[in-house]
Write a protein that binds this DNA or RNA. Structure first.
Lengths: 143, 143
DNA sequence: CGCAGGTAATTAGCGTTGCTAAGGAGTAGC
DNA sequence: GCTACTCCTTAGCAACGCTAATTACCTGCG
């Protein structure tokens, strides 16, 4: 692993690191009530307010049927509601319920997660690197 | 996004960034012949030589049955071979074939991948940040 | 008006990949 | 040589993504 950190391997390194860390985060999540994708949708709705199914699909970069399934699960769990759009009957607006909002805040509060614990053990400089990298990675993902 | 990059949110930011980038990388992969996980195993075998199924499972952090399935796919595709261990009949040694090795090098060569293109467009400082972050993220994942 | 064509959501059905549980073959120790 | 353990494999299940097809609705043009 010594000479591997050459310029040319940034690609491979980043890909592997992102893949592993992502899997590890998923494996260590605190609550089993919602999947990663479901919680992601719930958090988005909580953060940015009601959205249509199509908007959610686009935001999460999944197809409408996939998003529809996620929304179904959330509705069944009582985390969100579906309501028809007043001005366009084709559209369906998804809105967080009080229970859903509570779940988001509650989940955040009890996040003595694996990741949290680990990042706390890092140096300030390492955390800063990760923070900057997060911004760059998001830009990469959204570009 | 201004005040969001506070200490407390590193967690959430990193998690989201890793999730999104991981999905995006997977979506944009060049070759459809092998899945991400299958290629990961193939590359490991190419890089580090023959391993048993159990070793591969541990290295990739999946269960033995899951690894067994990956190996099956690779054997069917002619990328690797299965052979009994000479000294322990229970073990099965997985070894890259010439075709498998060629696929790894060929895949690397034709990697004008999405990620590669994007990272090339970054500044040197940004690449350096990502490189350092990759190391830290791997440590996090492996800890 | 009324129908043709487009858009949004949904349903149906498939493939991949992970897991747990259980089975089969081989090894090791008493 | 029998018991217990290890390693791989098979069987069956669940999650989640996708494409294709269906339903409901809107829009515009004859």
């Amino acid at each position: 692993m010594e000479r591997v950190s050459e310029e040319l391997d940034l690609d491979a390194q980043l890909r592997i690191a992102v893949g592993r860390l992502n899997r590890r985060i998923r494996a260590e999540k605190a609550s089993d009530e919602l999947s990663d994708g479901q919680f992601s949708v719930l958090a988005l709705l909580y953060r940015e307010g009601p959205h249509t199914v199509g908007e959610l699909a686009e935001a999460e970069r999944v197809t409408p049927p996939s998003m529809n399934r996620r929304v179904n699960s959330l509705v069944e769990g009582g985390y969100v509601t579906r309501e028809g759009s007043p001005d366009d009957g084709r559209k369906v607006i998804v809105r967080v319920t009080d229970a859903g909002a509570a779940f988001v805040t509650e989940t955040r509060r009890r996040r003595e997660h694996w990741l949290n614990k680990r990042t706390r053990a890092l140096t300030a400089a390492q955390r800063e690197t990760l923070r900057q990298a997060s911004v760059i990675m998001k830009e990469l993902a959204d570009s």
